[in-house]
Design a protein around this nucleic acid. Sequence first.
DNA 1: GGCAATTATCGTCACCTTGACAATAAATCC
DNA 2: GGATTTATTGTCAAGGTGACGATAATTGCC
Lengths: 253, 253
Amino acid sequence: MTIIAYDGFMPETRTAPARFPVTVDVVALTVRDGELNVLLITRLIDPFRGKLALPGGFVLAGEELLEAAGRELAEETGVEHLPGHLEQLGSYGPKGRDPRGDVLTVAHLLLAPNFPVLSAGSDAEHAAWYPVSQVQNGALQLAFDHERILGDAVERAKSKLEYSPLGAAFCGEEFTVAQLRTVYEAVWGTRLDPRNFHRKATGTPGFLEDTGRTTTGDAGRPAALFRLAGAARPAAGQPTRAVLNPPLMRPRD
Amino acid sequence: MTIIAYDGFMPETRTAPARFPVTVDVVALTVRDGELNVLLITRLIDPFRGKLALPGGFVLAGEELLEAAGRELAEETGVEHLPGHLEQLGSYGPKGRDPRGDVLTVAHLLLAPNFPVLSAGSDAEHAAWYPVSQVQNGALQLAFDHERILGDAVERAKSKLEYSPLGAAFCGEEFTVAQLRTVYEAVWGTRLDPRNFHRKATGTPGFLEDTGRTTTGDAGRPAALFRLAGAARPAAGQPTRAVLNPPLMRPRD
DNA sequence: GGCAATTATCGTCACCTTGACAATAAATCC
DNA sequence: GGATTTATTGTCAAGGTGACGATAATTGCC
């Protein structure tokens, strides 16, 4: 690790402050066919060439973290306007994560509806959705410490569903209670009673808002379409801090 | 911002990856006289000379984040072995936080019993406990974006008490139910019914463990002394992930 | 069109948790 | 020794939850 010359960031310590390369990684989660999926790219360069990894890249000078995360994801998926909810997950490193040297990475979490990924982004790295279970059972292996980051991300997602209205971030603008329930079932890996879930979801004040419209064309009785209620919807540019009270508890054992 | 020459961290992007100075800050919270307090230092150098700030400093090469946070806190408080629970809070920046240039900071949260701070650490910066309310009502102003970080830390602490056994991190090894209750009251800023709190705290499986011993010397009936139950105690070196289920909900409105 | 199949939604009931508050226990204070 | 203080155990009504029955409103098939 190169020691950088004095540059004004002293003399708070006697040791020269190290500068680190800083990357942002994004754990983009979605639900496809009732299963939790994560967006992964195939690395084209060493280290870990040919391995799967989380999308991400270096933070540029003058960039905010969230901004960088959104930019990298957009670049690598070829998707201009990312749907869903993006938040910071946590930072990892800088020691021993990258064989090339110390790198600090700030991981992010995107909860999004199932959007199509353009087969190759500007980096020509292939991006695609993969079932999270394939990583958890060892069938897929990830580069760097990305399995650990994915594990933390899934844990965060699970608890987000309990305490926040963000389960709806996996759905589109409008959705049925059953669609929302399959999100909960996929993320938590459990089955929920449709009747009790319906009562709880529609009965929680400030969560869902009936659009008055219904589905049509599917088998069975048409379902009412809901959207996130005003209080639970993110304010323009601001992250959602709305809280589900009381929580929609996931069954434990 | 200086651009560093090519050093192997390419060619994933066409843009030179910026290296950033990385600092760790620590929001150390404790409860003193029934009030939530935060550990602050008085800055001796510009910028913000003479202002109050969170303890912290640069991450050194080869250091982990938690490690750096613990080291900085120990240096600035003069306390060798920090009590309590330390975890990562989140990262801020790098843009526009420091008048000297872009700096990324990884904030940490320490929940600790009320430990005495040695009046001056090795940096000769004065460290002391201050009521959080004094910052929130504007009577005290903090340097950098530290008020925002403190706000996020307090919010995190509030929800930690609901969903984890970490309220006990504010107490010593052994504590009474009433001591634990004053922690909850201080952090949440509410009053709780002693009888209902007692029922909930002692009735939650895997939370408290009766030591069999009692307090003595205080006014009133002696109180039973408890410790964190085995399942809720942090494993050696590992962070506590134990969860309080069902949660000990704070009153909202 | 009519009936089966399918999915959505409403209802019921026993059990548990919670909040409010009364009653009792076991020390100290004077 | 009685007043005071704090801890702990109960009690009860109201509301939430899990299990599951019943009904509603479509599509699919003949």
